[in-house]
Amino acid sequence: MLKIEHLTKKYGDKAAVEDLSLHIRPGEICGFIGHNGAGKTTTLKSVAGILSFDGGEIYVNGNSVKTDPMKTKRDIAYIPDNPDLYDYMTGIRFLNFIGDIFGVPADVRQEKIRSLGDTFELTKDLAQPISAYSHGMKQKLAVISAWLHDPKLILMDEPFVGLDPKASHILKEQMREHCDRGGAIFFSTHVLEVAEKLCDEVAIIKQGRLIREGTMEEVRGDESLESVFLELED
């Protein structure tokens, strides 16, 4: 589903990500772990087609992000760590905007908004302007918008920040269901316990380089993910 081949992204002379290669198959949830400034967001944004990159290739569902960004973007949903959405829209207008961009038919859209809105307990607030939303509500709206067009690959940057425990639990369930239906998820997190419980695959990045990658069992061994991460960080 996602194939990152030798990705390199530089800011001036400094390499934020260097020679990073990673494969994620359909049905997999891959956790992306690393310290602050390690290059997680840069990698996710490069995959989402937001940032251009200096070297390597990224393929989503067989299409190149570089040469065919429109095709890949249709298969992707991206949720950033701080969802700065359109404050000037109401929640429902924002969802309809996303629906229009992805060409989601009216009845499908309506059904999805209803079910996801109810699941995340946001339905009654959809008529409010986004400017009046709390951080958690914006995060929920971003999640609903991501699921709205049934993407194949969902990219999430620290998706649990700002969500209440119930919403976090629901999101984890949704993530699992998405992958059980054949989708894939690539998300960054600092909450290692969540990664440990949720992920099939895990990738650890340090100073722009991928230093460990594989199934949770391969990476963790007999230790906890936290111990492995801290050892690698040292």
Binding site: G99, A106, Q110
Partner: peptide, 19 residues
């Protein structure tokens, strides 16, 4: 900013350009 409760209406589909 009095709270307006959302009442479901039939979604209107529009093209990318008009969106």
């Amino acid at each position: 900013a009095a709270k307006t409760v959302y009442r479901e209406k039939r979604a209107k589909v529009s093209s990318v350009h008009s969106a």
